[in-house]
Amino acid sequence: MSERYSRQEIFAPIGAEGQEKIRNKHVLIVGAGALGTGSAEALVRAGIGKLTIVDRDYVEWSNLQRQQLYIEKDAQNRIPKAVAAKERLLQVNSEVDIQAHIMDVSVGEIEELVKGVHLIIDATDNFDIRLLLNDASQKYTIPWIYGSCVGSYGISYTIIPGKTPCLNCLLESVPLGGLTCDTAGIISPTVQMVVAYQVTEALKILVEDFDSLLRKLQSFDLWKNQQTAIDVQSLKKDSCPSCGTVRTYPYLDFSNQTKTAILCGRESVQIRPSVQAERNLDELASMLAHQGKVDQNPFLLSFTIDEKRMVIFKDGRVFVHGTKDVSEAKTLYHRYLG
């Protein structure tokens, strides 16, 4: 028995055999915000063999209240979350193979990311990407664990292809609007509770103890002292285009993907160019220096003009801060970046 994982091996449902299984598994975490940092730290401490973590964003001061892998200097320097997360995770456990990508996950990316992965953990903040994960999970027969939270309310569900209903069966359509961290806030225990459900389910899957899975749609409200779970097995639909008998995987079709997204928790819009091309940040910096205030690090460039701020990533994506209006954001984008 290894000293490092001894307490986990003493836990009978895992044991030394389970620990060895965990060591041989590869988990993909999509999103390195509150849920993603929580799950990543837990799995890395638990001795996962390989962890891939992806995120499109960078660390800001408002993240530090609940996103447990980040520290003040990450916010000061606007370090991409994938980079800051990897640095901290390797300090926690240098034995884990950690792959971190600064990336906005869409159709092309997800098909690459899921290769060789045993489990996907959802730590995203919108349903466009969750339905994309859901279709990829079904197409490649990889389980995934949905998790989400707002305020003091959280929800989670484990989707096993071929066994349980999928997210598309449960939702039937893409939810529009609703509460976000922007409008309702979030307290860290809510995050930790969802992470606890997701990571426990993950450990069961990793040690292949499928009989112990929760198999219910679990929700709770920590402030209102409520907890409920619904057995949703009867909602599995043979007619579902994602997991039914005739599958089209609609969310893996690029035309169904949004190219702009309003970011959860901030007055910001992300714009993703339809053609991917790397930006030369140095050139851009000298070009924009005459128009407004420019700050730069190796990964991104921040450009402030009047009340608005744009952050341009090397991969071409742009965040427009100071607006939730997609068309206004696009106007600014085209005004300064062509």
Binding site: G36, A123, T124, S148, C149, V150, G154, I155, L171, C264
Partner: peptide, 10 residues
Amino acid sequence: IEIVHFVGGG
């Protein structure tokens, strides 16, 4: 009655 509603944050 049991009610579970979906939220998007994370």
